[in-house]
Structure formats: structure tokens, C-alpha cells
Amino acid sequence: MTHNTPLSPRPLRHLTEVHRRVLSTAQLRAHGVATAELNDQCRAGGPWRQLLPGVVLLHPGPATSEERLHAALLYAARESTPGVPSQPRADEPHRPVYAEAMITGLAALTLHGFSSAPPLTSQDRIDVLVPRLRRLRTTGYVRILRTPSLPTPRQVTGLPVAPVPRAVADAVAELADSGSVRRLLSEAVREGHCEPTSVVRELNRAKLLSRPHVVDAVDSLLAEGRAIAEDRLYRMVREYGLPDPVWNVDLRLPGGPHLGGLDAYWPEQAVAVELDTRAPRQDEDALWSEYTRKREHLERLGITVVHITPKKLRDSAEQQAAVVRTALMASGDRDPAAYVVVLPRQ
């Protein structure tokens, strides 16, 4: 039997091409390949090669990046039934479901299209995320990462891939260079893959915010994220025809205490917008309490405060503009607000 000999008794035509080149030993047995025959095909110099425990490459020569990714998932995924899953329609190639496994780390970021992540051909290792209780070990080019709760994967080129925030955290965990960390975090936000808070939340869960080079990169990320959110707020006001506010101001009572900074304020209507760009760190509850106290104080003075998150500005700017417009229109039905002093924010 050569590597071009069809397997029997079940043909492979229902599989996509890459899945005809990389199969598990369980799948090969389901296709009629006996253990002795498998060992013969995988002998030194033979037409097949064992890429990973229980995973076979069905052609001579090195594996492609695509084959390495599928092999890593075949190794790590939980099989619901032995062999190849149920056959699809004749005109529908089968794409195996890789249960309880997904690509993460730098390989995932490359698949997500990050220019700051190295190409797959130069990555010696592929990280695979699995549930904590799975009995798997790191082997060959596959590093097994465990988590108490798997995130919902994204499908990228037919592969289950960790969401960007989780993939970033898993990649950063292995990076000691602050420049590399900063580039990954910056691209995640700048290119619209996710919001800064979601990245920081994953870094916090991974206990990476105690590393100085990560903290420095996070500070830069949050500053960049706020700048992006402010730009979206400017565009929202302009594109949806809201009246011009005064931007980035501090409010004070005459001769009294500082009331807090605001991103936009309409003095005649006593309506304010505040961007909620809190970083989800250990002191999140205390910071939220501060937000709440400021909002309640301003509202007692008759000032309506609209909180908007960067994500809402990105995904539903028209809806947020309608909320602000409603608050402006309702100002005539409210009692006049207390007089406050408006100063440029320091």
C-alpha cells in the first residue's frame, strides 16, 4: 500500500482536502487501516509520519502550517464518537468539529490577522486551549493551556480560535519584551478587534498585571483606547446632528468643591456625557463607586449625566446619539439646574 492507495472500507471523498492529509489513528482505524499497516506506513522513510501522539500526516515531507494547526486540534479535541463523525450530504465536504479545544496565543492572533504576530511558518509552537480537567500533556510543537471555563471560539478559516482578548493574554504570558506586548495590545484596539477593557480583564484574570512591562503596555493601551473613544464621540455628535457641546471640562460649584470632569457638556440644557473607560483591575468596585457618587451628586444639582461605553460608541453610535438627543429635548421639562462653573479639564 502506498500513500496514494485509497483507504477502505470508507472513502475519504467526503472530507475537505486538509482532512484527507491529517487524520487521527482512530479515524484511520475507522477507515479500515489496521495497526500493523499503520506502523508500516509510519516507518522511517515511509510515506506517512506521526506528527503528534495519535495524529498522522498522510504524505511524505514536512507538514504545512494548515496541517500543523489541524493536527494540533485533532490531538487536543475530545472525540464524541470514535473515528470520523457522521457523513454529510454528498455535495457538502465534512469539517470535523473540534470539541473542547481551540487555537490561542500567537497562532490565534496570526489567524485573526494581526500584523504584529509572526507568520505561522515561523512559529515553532502552537498553543491550544482546553478545559482544566482534560487529561492532556504538552507534546511536540503543541503547548496545552488550561482554563476553568472555555470561551466561545471564533471560526477562522474553518478553525476554532480563541477570541482576541483571550488570545492576547495567552500570548502576552510568554512575552518578556515590553515592545512586543505594547504592539499586540495596541493593534488589538487600534484595528477594532476588541475594546481595551476586555483585554485588560483577561490580563487581570491571567494575573499578568503584576509584571512591570505588562503594566506599562496596559497604561499605553488605555490612553490609546480613550483617545479612540473620544474621537468616536466627536464623530457621533457631528454625524448625527447634535448641537455642539463644550468638550473636556471640569465642573465646580461657585466657591465650592470640584464636581468632576466630563467629556462633553451642554450648559444650556445641563446635560453631560461621560465616557466609561474604567480598566477592570482589582479596584474596579471602588472606581465604580466613585463614578456612581459623582453621577448622583451631579443629578442632585439637576444635571443629567449620560454614561457611554466605548463599545456602545463603536457598535451603536446612532442609538447613543438618540439617548443624548432625548436628554437634551427633555431639559425643558425639568427644574433649572444649579449654577456651576465650567472650566477646561486639566
Results as ranks from 00 to 15, higher is better:
V161N: 08
Q27T: 10
S80W: 15
D170F: 00
P131G: 03
L184V: 13
D40P: 04
A117T: 04
Q123T: 10
G54S: 09
E195N: 09
W266M: 08
L23D: 00
R345M: 10
G61V: 13
P96A: 09
C42G: 08
V33T: 11
L184R: 08
T309W: 02
Y75P: 01
N39E: 15
V142T: 04
G105P: 04
L313T: 09
P243A: 12
P119G: 09
P267S: 08
R232M: 12
R293C: 00
R132P: 01
G256S: 11
K312V: 12
S316I: 06
A34Y: 09
H70N: 14
A173D: 11
L129F: 10
L129Q: 05
T157C: 06
A229V: 03
P212Q: 11
R143P: 02
R78F: 05
H112M: 07
H193I: 06
P148Q: 04
G225C: 07
D276H: 12
M1H: 05
A338W: 12
E187C: 14
S186P: 05
V271K: 00
P336L: 07
S186G: 14
Q41Y: 14
Q155T: 09
S80M: 14
H258S: 10
A36K: 09
P131N: 06
L221F: 05
A279H: 02
R252G: 01
L106F: 00
A337C: 12
R325F: 04
D124Y: 02
Q346V: 15
S115F: 10
S116R: 12
L209Y: 05
I308H: 00
A90P: 02
L343M: 14
Q123C: 09
E66K: 04
L58H: 05
H94A: 08
S180V: 13
R252A: 11
G83R: 01
R20C: 03
V237G: 03
H31Q: 15
R314I: 07
H213T: 00
R293K: 10
R183S: 15
C42Q: 07
A76T: 02
W48C: 11
E230M: 09
L209I: 05
R134S: 07
R68P: 05
K207C: 11
M1R: 15
E299W: 05
P163F: 00
V164L: 06
G105D: 03
V56R: 04
P53H: 01
D263C: 08
P257Y: 11
H193M: 12
E239K: 11
V130A: 04
E290D: 05
E17F: 15
Q269T: 06
S65D: 15
R29N: 08
L262H: 09
R29D: 12
E239C: 04
V342C: 14
P62A: 15
L184P: 05
A206K: 09
P160T: 03
E191G: 07
S198K: 13
A36G: 10
R295F: 01
G45D: 13
